[in-house]
Design a binder for these strands. Structure first.
Lengths: 233, 233
DNA sequence: TAAGAAAAAGTACATAGTGTTTGAAAATAA
DNA sequence: TTATTTTCAAACACTATGTACTTTTTCTTA
């Protein structure tokens, strides 16, 4: 926070180049963009570009970091709103579907390419960092689990990302709410199986109520989908 | 099968180039290989290369198709052995872990790159093609499912691939058997949840035996892991 | 084993893009 | 205003791709 205060030009040109990238990405897809294209669109010099980014990928990444920041701010706002007033429940999975849905053009333009893989990794790392501590906290006993928490985390994040991928690849045939529901159906039983039976349930009822409609499971789920209670970064 | 019989040179040079690719891939990783490298290693002319493959990617893909063929032949052999004599059960997931484990160097060399994404897609398509008809056959009723079979398929295949990815990325810290077990733990309950309660269980026992050790679930699982009973391609 | 077909080699080249290097000009912060 | 930082323009070295064309070699088959 105590940074030196950056030159106005720096922010401006960085923004210009990011805007150029986005415009071009929607126009012709990421991989087919050349540095020259960006230069022309943003109307900046070649050397200027390389003064800011090592290559095209770094520019793309900077844009995703920007998006991530916006998303985090939005989530934080929701959380504080929920704590103070009577705001709706926070559901990060649902919000993720909504958020990515809004940016589907960007996704389309990079999916299936090297850039797509890059972003997938980026998101995977990010989400795993959020989720893993939560799952660690949820494990019922300290005994060895049938599946290591690290693997469960990986699995869960992969599931989410793959669902999103499917959704976007198929032009979002269902609303985000439906997708969130599917995700819940598909993953909740797995989590319980992996973390040990009755994981994350209040101590009272442990093995009763085999139907999945109990509130305890739901509340567990809210824990899972509310990672900001355990700041992961 | 009634092909014209190919010129001996064709097979030889194709094989030479594939071998070159593999040798180089282990040496410096896929993306850093140039066509020239391949030419030098295989000792073939430039124009020859382009007479066979449009580009580097096509060469890589041809290699994976080769590997897939080998794998399928192995599976077929196991299946017929099982039908005739008293061979062990066929478990395609386990075999997949074993098979990819044997080729982990290749995986390492392409993971995380554009090529990795390409291969991931290739495998995804291939496995989905095998699995989807099986799942279609398993659905209990014709009513609308909470999760479309297509999504469940996608989800399941993604899970498998992501587990494999994790396993290879971490230098195979567990034996294939353990991985197959984890995969079963993580996905079996999801499948049942997605296909409807009691899916793929013999009609008799439907909702009893909440512990997961029943043979019916296992047999169901064998169905899932034995896609060759419903030829998908 | 000879003729004809097919494949591979050799060579050169057109094309395209990347990332670096200069020194001068412009914008900014102080 | 002045010193500093950033930007710009232009040229350039480099790497790699994919194509075109001719000559040579190898294979098939009759």
């Amino acid at each position: 926070m105590g940074e030196k205060k950056e030159d106005r030009r720096v922010g401006r040109t960085r923004r210009l180049m990011q805007e150029a990238l986005m415009a071009l990405v929607e126009e012709k897809g990421y991989e087919r963009i050349t540095v020259q294209d960006i230069l022309d669109w943003a109307d900046v010099g070649r050397s200027t570009f390389y003064a800011h980014f090592r290559d095209k990928d770094e520019l793309l990444l900077s844009w995703f970091e920007h998006l991530r920041t916006l998303f985090e701010q939005q989530q934080q706002a929701l959380l504080t709103a929920r704590r103070t007033g009577n705001a709706p429940e926070v559901n990060i999975v649902l919000d993720l579907f909504r958020y990515t849905g809004k940016h589907h053009k960007l996704y389309k333009a990079i999916s299936g390419r090297e850039s797509g893989e890059m972003i997938r990794k980026y998101l995977h790392r990010y989400l795993s960092g959020l989720l893993q501590p939560v799952l660690e906290g949820l494990r019922v006993s300290r005994r060895t689990l049938p599946v290591p928490v690290e693997v469960t985390t990986h699995q869960l994040v992969s599931s989410l990302l793959s669902l999103m991928t499917w959704w976007l690849d198929h032009n979002m045939p269902y609303p985000p709410e439906k997708m969130e529901e599917m995700f819940r159906i598909l993953t909740r039983p797995s989590i319980e199986a992996a973390l040990g039976k009755g994981a994350a349930r209040p101590k009272e009822e442990a093995a009763v109520n085999p139907k999945g409609n109990d509130d305890s499971a739901t509340s567990f789920y809210n824990l899972f989908i509310d990672p900001f209670c355990c700041p992961g970064r």
